[in-house]
C-alpha cells in the first residue's frame, strides 16, 4: 500500500497547483455550469480522474474530512496520506466523493442559521458535455446557462429541485471529468431543456 501511495504522488507543485485548482473551483461555483481546467496531479490512482484528485488535494484535510463512497472507498490510504483527512461517515462529512449521485437526505444540509454546515458532493462523471442538456438559472448566470454532463441520474432535475427548496440550506455539487470541473451551487435552479 505504501508503494501505491508513493507511486501516485500529489500535486507536482503543492502551493501553486492548489491555488490554480482553487481558482478553477471558485469560478466553477461562481459561474454554474461552465467548465474549468484544474492543475491536476501527474498520475492519480484509479479510479480518480485528474480533476477529482485535484479537487481533493485542494480542499480536503483533517479539518474537513471526506466520505469516500462506492469505488473510491479503496483510496482511503492515498487520501489520508496526501490530505491528512481521516474517513468520515456520510452524515458527518464536509465532502462526499462519489461516482453516482448520493441521496441528499443522507448528507448534512446545514441549518437555517448555519447553512454552510453542509456537504459538498464531488461527483466524478464520464464527461461534462454530451449528456442530456439542462438549463441553469440563478446567481452567477447572466440569463441562462446550458449544461449537459453525462452520468447524472434520470430524476436529477426533481432531486435538485428538492435541494433547491431547502435554500439557504442544501448541498453544493462539483462535477469532475478528465481534467475539468463544473459547479452547481445550491442557489442554481435547474430545468430540462425544452
Amino acid at each position: 500500500m505504501a508503494d501505491h501511495i508513493l507511486a501516485h504522488p500529489g500535486f507536482a507543485d503543492p502551493v501553486h497547483d492548489a491555488q490554480s485548482s482553487f481558482r478553477a473551483l471558485l469560478q466553477a461555483l461562481a459561474r454554474p455550469g461552465t467548465l474549468h481546467a484544474v492543475a491536476a496531479p501527474p498520475d492519480p490512482p484509479a479510479p480518480l480522474s485528474p480533476a477529482t484528485a485535484a479537487v481533493l488535494l485542494t480542499l480536503v484535510d483533517s479539518d474537513a474530512p471526506v466520505h469516500l463512497a462506492g469505488p473510491f472507498a479503496l483510496l482511503a490510504p492515498w487520501v489520508a496520506f496526501h490530505t491528512g483527512s481521516g474517513e468520515a461517515a456520510a452524515d458527518g462529512a464536509a465532502f462526499v466523493l462519489a461516482d453516482a449521485l448520493p441521496e441528499f437526505a443522507a448528507l448534512p444540509t446545514g441549518s437555517d442559521e448555519i447553512p454552510e454546515a453542509s456537504a459538498t458532493v464531488i461527483l466524478q462523471v464520464p464527461a461534462l458535455k454530451g449528456g442530456p442538456p439542462l438549463i441553469l438559472r440563478g446567481p452567477g448566470i447572466e440569463t441562462m446557462q446550458e449544461f449537459a454532463p453525462l452520468g447524472l441520474p434520470g430524476d436529477f432535475v426533481a432531486r435538485w429541485a428538492a435541494n433547491r427548496r431547502l435554500y439557504p440550506r442544501g448541498i453544493d455539487l462539483v462535477l469532475c471529468a478528465g481534467d475539468r470541473i463544473a459547479g452547481l451551487p445550491r442557489s442554481t435552479t435547474v430545468t430540462e431543456w425544452r
Binding site: 501553486h16 492548489a18 482553487f22 480542499l59 446567481p139 439557504p168 445550491r186 442557489s187
Partner: peptide
C-alpha cells in the same frame, strides 16, 4: 514565509469558506 504569507492549511480553510460563501450569496460565513 509561504507564498502569499498564509500557510496552506489556513488557505484551505479560507478557500472552503469562500466556496460556501459563493454558494449562498450574501450569507456571512
Amino acid at each position: 514565509y509561504n507564498f502569499a504569507y498564509l500557510d496552506e492549511q489556513t488557505k484551505r480553510m479560507l478557500r472552503r469558506a469562500l466556496l460556501k460563501a459563493v454558494a449562498i450569496p450574501g450569507h456571512q460565513i
